[in-house]
């Protein structure tokens, strides 16, 4: 009985301390920087993810070339808009992403194709395949 009462008192002190401690001894806990948001939480990230998905859907044959071009152009624009709207939030890799996305958009508008040798995607202005070095023939 006695031991139980002591245990109960100890538990009560621990509980009260847990709740009261942040108020009486406010540390600098809230000063830690926040971890960066997930890609899906930002407009930029969502647009980039959408671009990734559109690429992949085309690669697996789900999107027709027309739909691909239209969707791709739209989401590239969305990504660029998002980056322009919030340039401060752009990390180095994000910036590269956006450039790639924008670049891809311009390429995609042109005659796009695949290497006959190895199947890698060829940019519109490529003379040779970047993957295997074969001359680009389309």
């Amino acid at each position: 009985m006695g031991a139980e009462a002591i245990a109960a008192v100890l538990v009560m002190i621990a509980l009260l301390w847990l709740i009261v401690q942040p108020m009486v001894l406010p540390g600098n806990t809230s000063e830690q920087p926040d971890d960066p948001p997930d890609m899906e939480e930002t407009d930029r990230g969502r647009a980039l993810l959408a671009l990734r998905e559109i690429e992949f859907d085309q690669a697996t044959g789900k999107l027709s070339d027309d739909d691909f071009a239209e969707l791709h152009a739209r989401y590239t624009k969305a990504a660029v808009t998002a980056i322009e709207a919030d340039p401060a939030g752009v990390t180095a890799s994000d910036a590269i992403e956006g450039m790639i996305a924008a670049r891809v958009a311009t390429i995609s508008d042109g005659a796009n194709g695949f290497c006959e040798q190895c199947g890698a995607r060829l940019p519109a202005d490529a003379a040779f395949c970047a993957m295997c070095g074969a001359p680009a023939r389309r």
């Binding site: 790639i100 940019p123 970047a130």
Partner: peptide
Amino acid sequence: MPQAGYAV
């Protein structure tokens, strides 16, 4: 996009 063959 491993566009290794040209500069962005």
